[in-house]
Amino acid sequence: MRLAWSFLLSATISAGISLSPAAAHASYQATLPPALPGPGPLALMDSTFDLAQVAPPPQEDAPPIEGPADFSPAPAPEPETRYRSLGSRMGAAKWETIGLFAYVTATQAYWTDETTHFHFKDEGWFGKNTNNLGIDKLTHAFNAYLFTEFLGARIARKTGDRARAAAPAAMLSMGLMLYGEMWDAHKEDSGFSVQDVIFNTTGAALSVLRHTVPGLEEKLDFRLLMMPNSSIYTFKGKRHYEQQHFLLALELAGFRALRSSPLRFVELQVGYRGKDFTNADRATGITPKRDIFFGVGVNIKQLFFKDSRSRLGRAIGSGLNYFQLPYTAVYDY
């Protein structure tokens, strides 16, 4: 301790600083600047602090501060705003529509033999005296329905709204079917049929109804059943129409109360078919037959493909909404 005090005393003396309290106080006061007029220390502590007296007053006419221009790309609009109009939703399936247009062109060109000028033809409805007992009318309805379903699914994939995709898909489908009817209008063995146009509209409207009425998509299917004949499959003509059975299938699995019961594997079906109406049958005097049939079927999709994780399994399950497998139902022909 004595050593420390001796060191401090020597340093002070060498620096020329007096250790006298009075002298030290006088020396400190001499170094201070002259006192400014104003309240004393106690008055300053008692006064209130006003931020307005410290901060500069706002400049009313000051120009806004502008930063550098932002050249970053704008964010992509959300689907609900990007596809708000009917035209934009139709445009969401433009490439699919072009593909179907090419398909209709190719098939019509393949089936067209002799052509003539544009003309109308009254083909009738479902009478026994009609050319194909109305099977051709249901073919038009099913094709329009299938086009609408496909285009609606593609539009919904981009827009995220299946119900709002139904109407634009139906309009595109009816346009494609009308284009195909223009080909028929120039064929010698057919013509522009008002009945065909009505059934084109019916098929497209059924698809719209199926996707806009809540719960109907899970319950009701419009399907085509192709029954094999002696040639297994006939590509065109009246024998081709004889193979076609069109039906509506009511899936019991679509009802909430039956989803956990064994009835979920059951379908109730009603359909229409025609037979014995080929030219050879008519020539021999065989009376054409038309049948409205009822049946009970097995829901193959529910049985094997309901929870399929593979792409192939999901594709097969989706296809079963539109095509009925032969021999998977019992009918009252």
Rank of each mutant, 00 (worst) to 15 (best):
G124Q: 03
T105S: 08
H117K: 01
P39E: 09
M45G: 08
T107A: 06
P63N: 12
Q53T: 10
S85V: 08
T48F: 01
D136C: 07
K94S: 14
R89A: 00
K94V: 09
A109T: 13
E96P: 03
A74T: 10
Q59K: 06
A106V: 11
S47C: 13
A76M: 13
I65M: 14
P73V: 02
P68Y: 02
F71I: 12
R84S: 02
F126I: 00
G124D: 01
P75K: 01
G40Q: 00
A93L: 06
L44C: 10
T97I: 12
G134A: 05
Y103W: 12
K94Q: 06
N131I: 15
A62C: 03
S47E: 07
L42Q: 03
R84L: 14
R82L: 04
L42F: 14
P63E: 04
G99W: 09
F126K: 06
E80L: 11
F120Y: 05
A43N: 01
H140A: 00
F49H: 04
A109K: 03
W125C: 07
G127F: 04
W111M: 14
V104L: 05
R89L: 00
K137Q: 01
P75Q: 05
K128G: 02
F118Y: 07
I98N: 09
H140W: 07
F126V: 12
S72C: 13
F101A: 10
W125K: 00
P68M: 08
G87L: 10
A76E: 03
N129C: 12
F71C: 02
T130Q: 04
A76P: 09
F126A: 09
T48W: 06
E114I: 06
A62D: 02
Q53F: 06
D61N: 08
F126D: 04
H119R: 05
K128I: 02
P75D: 00
V104I: 12
T116Y: 07
A43M: 00
A109N: 15
E66M: 08
R82Q: 15
D61L: 09
L133F: 13
F120H: 01
A55P: 11
N131V: 11
L86C: 02
G127K: 05
L100E: 02
P73Q: 01
G99A: 13
K137V: 08
A55G: 11
A69Y: 08
Q59T: 15
G67A: 14
D61P: 11
I135K: 01
G67L: 05
N129G: 07
R82G: 13
L42I: 13
F118V: 04
T48G: 07
F49L: 09
T107L: 15
T97R: 03
A106F: 14
G67W: 13
G99H: 11
W125R: 00
